[in-house]
Structure formats: C-alpha cells, structure tokens
Amino acid sequence: MSFFKIDNMVKHFGGLAAVNGVSFEVKKGQIFGLIGPNGSGKTTLFNLISGYFRPTSGSIHFKGKRIDQLKTHKIIHLGVGRTFQVVKPLKRMSVLDNVIAAAFSHAITKHHARDIAEETIEFCGLTDRIGDLAKNLTIGDRKRLEITRALATKPELLLLDETFAGLNPNELNDALDLIGKISGSGITIIIVEHIMKIIMSISDHIHAINFGQTIAEGTPKQVAADPHVIEAYLGDQELNA
C-alpha cells in the first residue's frame, strides 16, 4: 500500500483540460516538489487532492483509501492539510482564534483546542502575533498563519502552495527553517514552488508538469537537467533566480 497515489488524473474546465492525465506517488516522509510554469495546473491538482474539485476522471488514494469523491472536510480529517496560494485568513478573528478553529478538528473541549493551538503557534513562531486580528498581519505572517492552521488539523500529508512567494529574504529563511522542522516531525509534504533554487534544494523528489501533463519526474538533479523542463521554463527568469 502506497502512502499517497494519484492515478491518471484529468480535470476539465469547460473545454480546457487544466490537468490531463497526471500520475504520481508520494512516499511517507518525503518532501515532494511539484513544479510547472504559470497556469500549468498545480493549484488545480491541490484542489483535486483536497476535494474542492471533483476529477473528470482518475483516482486519488491516501493511505489505501480512495479519497477523490470525498468532501473537503472529510479529507482533512483523514490527515491531509493544505494551504492556499491566495491566502485565506479568517480576517476578523485573531491569530489564536484562527488556529483554535482548526484545532477543534481534533479536540472537543475548548481548553484542549486552545492547548493544541498555542503549541502549534509556538512551533511556527507566530507567538508574538497571537492576539492580532488576521486581517492586520503582513503577507509573510499570513502565509505563516496558513501553515499554522493547516498543522493544527494534525495532517500526515501537508500541501503547501507557493508558501514562499512574496516573502523578503529574512522571511524566506524563516520559512525554509519551518519547512525543515515540519518535515523533521515526520509530516509528508507536497510543495508547489516557483523559485527553482529553493525547490531543488529542499525536495527529495520532483514532479514537473506543463499544460496539465507530466513532463519530467525524478531527483532534483535529473529534473533540472531534463530538456522538457528547461524548455518549459525557457525565458522564465525564475529558473535562474
């Protein structure tokens, strides 16, 4: 039984095939990089995995259970956590309340939920923002809040969608540390990232797509050298960034 497996995933929006026959497998404990140019279907894949979209065809298995027809909240309870590329803070709630709401997925009493939340906030280094309303956070802290909230649902598999975009160098280093810490605690991660240097350095395994189709897969070295990948990113300065 594989930990996480996508088979022949297809998603059409009207006439557009946003994802067109993608298959991959993620091993427990991996950091799995998902790359591809703008509009290649990465976020759509995340939305399919976390149940926001129903696949046109294909299947998704998580810990041996088929999850592609389940509702999002069910999938979350099974142990898949996700962040949003366009962050979705619960704006008029404090950071603590944002995370408590997430922690209730594994807590019944408010006391317990609060404990989980405070612990997770501490782990993610958001403690000094704990009382702020989410709408008043900087973009870096908002991204951090996304991760904190997802972690508070106690996932075994975490989907990170462009967590590094828009961060300044300091925040970037902090975020890298955080991801190392999360992975170190045994959580499997699928990460979408545009900054090549980062994704190449932190991923154990990389899957590259373009126009909804797989173009390369392998170790970071293999993928970086793949002519399809180079072609897809040609002219994309982020490759050299």
Partner: peptide, 11 residues
C-alpha cells in the same frame, strides 16, 4: 469569514 478556508480546517 471564509467558507473555503473553513472547509480546509476540517469544518
């Protein structure tokens, strides 16, 4: 506040 976010918290 946000129904999509709420679902992602397991709600």
């Amino acid at each position: 506040e946000d129904q999509d976010a709420a679902e992602s918290l397991g709600i």
